[in-house]
């Protein structure tokens, strides 16, 4: 699992942290944050993709080996949320990299995130 903050307001990071914490324990289902995109199978992308983060997101996506899954976490990642139309926003995550799974919510509850991760790990 590799987390990419493409412009989030760090609200989603709080909840993803909770999901990997001891209480919701996403690791119980085999989901683990790893040190390098090369080790990762899933990209957790949060926030609307700002103009400055479009290229880094693209490169992280290409650095991850096949088969890879992109999970867009939070309303901003799905449709830019309240930041739609801001001049610094390049678009939603789907406009930059192909998205496989979306987790709505601002920020989505840890239970929703863990549920999404379970569908990815299949456990």
């Amino acid at each position: 699992m590799r987390h990419v903050d493409a412009g989030s307001c760090n609200g989603c990071e709080v909840e993803i942290g909770g999901a990997f914490g001891p209480v919701y324990d996403a690791e119980r289902y085999g989901a683990r944050l790893v040190a390098s995109p090369r080790h990762a199978d899933v990209l957790l992308v949060t926030g609307p993709v700002t103009r400055n983060m479009a290229e880094p997101l693209r490169r992280t996506y290409e650095a991850a080996p096949e088969p890879r899954v992109v999970v867009a976490v939070g309303d901003c990642a799905i449709n830019c949320g309240l930041f739609a139309g801001a001049y610094g926003v390049a678009g939603a995550v789907a406009d930059v990299v192909p998205v496989d799974l979306e987790v709505p919510g601002c920020p989505p509850e840890p239970t929703a995130i863990v549920e999404a991760l379970r569908r990815v790990t299949g456990r």
């Binding site: 989030s8 307001c9 609200g11 989603c12 400055n52 139309g85 801001a86 601002c106």
Partner: peptide
Amino acid sequence: YVHKGIEKLFEGREPAQALALTERISG
């Protein structure tokens, strides 16, 4: 890197309506 241009979004909005935006400056 996460510069979205929030201050520009405030212009021309109702004060009450802009409150939700201020809550998402830093989550």
